[in-house]
Design a protein around this nucleic acid. Structure first.
Length: 281
DNA sequence: AAGAAGCCCTGATAGC
DNA sequence: TGCTATCAGGGCTTCT
């Protein structure tokens, strides 16, 4: 379930194997993921140097020496694993079904990077580096939650007049880029705000707390991910290090960590929301 | 025009 | 034990 912190963790895991190195070989094992690969995808990557691996919202963005950007999304189940193809190197056993290995990059330096995605909600695309601001998926994206642009003042403006529940508003990537179902539930709990409250009705001082808690939960999750980078790079791409710290997400019926009332689940916009009826108003 | 619902896809799990 | 139904959710499309 990759949200921003997971994608950032993946980025940090891939960077040492990819940055500054050429893609010696690129292979696609089917014609599409969520969308078709762009024309001549593998050819356009072969022999190309990847100068830097960045991130925008939940997208990874590789800056290529050809002037193109390699834009990748993990979808729901996308995973990258790194194996060492050099002779004599140990190859870790993966528990990932190789039937869903859809893309392979052999990097200069000996790293093989394999993208596995059973549900194929992920995507890979190429786009001119200088025109990323008009890349369709990036147009209209809100600020990163861990940036100076994201603040209570910003939320006040973004929420003004909004009649949608705050849960839905925070999931809207045009409002803030990179939050998903899990961290929205967590941030609302930490901020003491009911997920049902209409976005436009929240008082400025409570938005102050909300902005701070969104930032805090993302920061903490990235930090927790950071500690598992070596595991990611060397073994099997296991993520989920942060899940033990969820206070409400997927804890329906369990005791609220603050007041011990049962955590409730409700469905908003077709998605589960977990919250405490006492602590969140 | 904003907001909500439908859809894509497969694997894990619950329920019979 | 083995089948079927349900759920997971990011983001695009379609409906109200």
């Amino acid at each position: 379930m990759p949200e921003l912190p997971e994608v950032e963790t993946v980025r940090r895991g891939l960077a040492p194997a990819m940055e500054g190195r050429r893609i010696l070989r690129a292979e696609t094992r089917r014609a599409d993921l969520r969308f078709p690969f762009p024309p001549n995808f593998a050819d356009r990557l072969t022999g190309v140097r990847l100068a830097a691996l960045g991130r925008r919202a939940k997208y990874l963005v590789g800056e290529l020496s050809t002037g193109e950007a390699l834009v990748m999304h993990l979808g729901m189940t996308g995973r990258f694993t790194i194996t060492d193809t050099r002779p004599g190197k140990f190859h870790h056993e993966t528990r990932i079904d190789p039937a869903h290995d859809h893309v392979v990059f052999d990097m200069e330096g000996g790293a093989r990077i394999t993208f596995n995605d059973p549900r194929r909600f992920g995507s890979m695309d190429l786009w001119p580096l200088g025109e990323l601001d008009i890349y369709p998926a990036f147009e209209g994206l809100g600020p990163e939650p861990v940036s100076n642009a994201f603040s209570a003042a910003y939320l006040r403006e973004a929420f003004a007049g909004k009649k949608t529940p705050v849960k839905a508003a925070l999931l809207d990537q045009r409002v803030v880029a990179g939050l998903g179902n899990i961290y929205v539930s967590e941030a609302l709990f930490r901020a003491g705000i009911s997920p049902r409250r209409l976005a436009g009705s929240i008082r400025p001082e409570r938005l102050e707390r909300l902005a701070a808690e969104v930032r805090a939960v993302i920061d903490e999750a990235i930090l927790a991910g950071g500690s598992s980078i070596s595991d990611f790079a060397n073994t099997d791409g296991e993520l989920g290090y942060f899940q033990h710290r969820f206070r409400v997400y997927d804890r329906e019926g369990e005791a609220c960590p603050v007041c011990e009332r049962p955590i409730r689940r409700l469905v908003q916009s077709g998605r589960s929301t977990f919250y405490c009826t006492r602590c969140q108003r």
